[in-house]
């Protein structure tokens, strides 16, 4: 699933970023599964290929790494992954509708992941 989201956060986001973006969801999944290097690879590719190569990618990476370092002090992975997702949505997406849609997708996915883990 993580590879599908990685692919979509490049291919889909190039065309539909102003409607709905997969990148925040992808980052949340990477965070929750501790797959940093694949996330980093997609981040670099996205930085080079999708839209303006913006300063925000550095900020998102910094937030990701900071949260990764303090993850044990947070109540759950879910919360940290959600913060990563929220930060990337707010910093990267152009309008409120796309931020809300992308955040809703991230929340739904993380909830279902959490349920699977608990059962």
């Amino acid at each position: 699933m993580i590879y599908v989201f990685g692919f979509l956060s490049l291919w889909w986001d190039e065309v539909f970023q102003d409607v709905f973006s997969f990148f925040p969801l992808f980052l949340a999944v990477c965070f929750s599964r501790e797959n940093f290097w694949f996330g980093a690879l997609i981040l670099v590719l996205r930085f080079l290929s999708v839209g303006p190569s913006s300063f925000f990618y550095v900020v998102i990476l910094l937030i990701y790494l900071l949260l990764f370092q303090v993850r044990e002090f947070l109540s759950s992975y879910f919360l940290a992954a959600l913060i990563v997702s929220l930060a990337s949505s707010v910093l990267l997406l152009p309008n409120l509708t796309s931020i809300i849609l992308s955040m809703m997708a991230a929340c739904l996915f993380l909830f279902s992941e959490g349920r699977k883990r608990s059962t």
């Binding site: 490049l10 190039e14 980093a40 981040l43 670099v44 930085f47 080079l48 290929s49 999708v50 190569s53 300063f55 990618y57 550095v58 990476l61």
Partner: peptide, 22 residues
Amino acid sequence: FASFFLVEKAYHISSFVRPVFV
């Protein structure tokens, strides 16, 4: 990555990658 970002800002490496992706 931060250094790469500065290199991109100075030399616009993305202008080689982006047309292929588009």
